[in-house]
Amino acid sequence: MPRWWPAFALLAMCASGAASAQTPSSGSWPGATMAPSVPAQAAVASAPRTSSVELELRPRFGGTEATAINHLAGPVEVTLLSDGPPPHATPALPARVTVPGGGRLVIAQLTDGAAGTRLRLVAIPGLPTARARNVEYLYPLRDAPVRIAQGFGGGFSHDDNENRHAVDFAVPAGTPVLAARDGVVMQVESGASARLDPDAIVDAGDDRVRGNFIRVLHDDGTMALYAHLQQAGVVVAPGARVLRGTIIGFSGNTGLSAAPHLHFVVQANRGMRLESLPFRMAGPDGPLRFGQVRADTDAPP
């Protein structure tokens, strides 16, 4: 799963407006400000699939107030940046805040006189204060033998910080996916209908790379990602509390996927960056040992 790249927009300091961009799921997520007079195609480099976090600009106190609006059912850490000389702002840019799920929070008060400034909103899901507990996770597939196509540190696609401790379970499409741990559904995507052509050029900031997925927030601030689910294969809604062992979706082959499988990873926000975490998991026949699995060259991403 590649990292996200920025989308840019011109900021008209005296104009009000809001813009949404890609779902914050990995790395730096591009958010953009947009004045009504700026054409949409110039404001956002790649069209968003879902409206998850917005940057709202409103005239206030003789300047412009920048507010982050979080539509996810869990916290997001955001940083407002300026590409080039930063405008005068309180606090000075870059400014960072953590926005609770479903909440809104002022990031900075910008002074007038900085028309043409390029702003960039970067967002990472989760609390930067998350501290993982030593929890045993449940094997997240029902009535399916354990077949690990790629384990911890798999060279095919598990070689970055966000996926180094991810596991790809090879499983037929339509297999029930279970919650591996209690938590709250923070984010879902269920509209992908097929796998992507691996030779196609896909924006790194496009959620299509993971296809249909579910992100579950745990009570210690860590998050589990269940990815590449089948079309309409999500059966839980954001904000719902799920219990360990309950069905939350169905496996598939959507997104940047070479074969039907479930991509499972536990992540935490480590201060504006996602990091995958090693975890323990109980399989049908006892503990699973992902660190001993090496990816085959034909393993799915």
Results as ranks from 00 to 15, higher is better:
V202M: 02
Q230R: 04
D220W: 13
F250Q: 07
D206H: 11
V216L: 11
G255Y: 07
I248R: 12
V236T: 10
D199I: 01
G221I: 01
D207T: 15
H218Q: 12
P198L: 13
A224D: 13
L225N: 09
N253C: 06
A232C: 10
R241F: 06
V235L: 00
T254Q: 06
I214C: 00
L217S: 06
G249H: 13
A224E: 09
R208W: 05
V209W: 05
F213N: 05
G211N: 08
F250I: 02
R210C: 11
L217R: 13
M223V: 03
I248K: 13
R208L: 13
R210L: 12
Q230P: 07
V236H: 03
A204I: 04
A258R: 10
G221A: 05
H228V: 10
I201R: 15
A240F: 03
G252S: 14
T246Y: 02
R208Y: 06
A240M: 10
G252N: 10
A200N: 06
D219L: 08
F213T: 01
H228L: 09
A237F: 05
G205Q: 10
I214D: 00
V202I: 14
S257Q: 05
A232L: 09
S251E: 01
P198F: 13
G233A: 05
R241S: 07
N212H: 04
L243V: 11
G252L: 08
T222D: 10
P238W: 13
A240T: 04
N253T: 04
S251H: 04
G239E: 02
D220V: 14
F213R: 07
Y226T: 09
V209C: 04
A200K: 11
D206L: 14
H218I: 07
R208C: 09
F213P: 09
T246E: 14
A240V: 02
N253F: 11
G252K: 03
L243E: 12
Q230C: 03
V234Q: 00
R244F: 00
V216T: 14
I214L: 02
V209F: 07
R244C: 04
R208K: 08
A227Q: 10
Y226S: 08
F250S: 02
V235P: 01
D203C: 11
P198G: 06
V216A: 01
I247D: 12
S251I: 07
D199V: 04
D220N: 14
P238F: 03
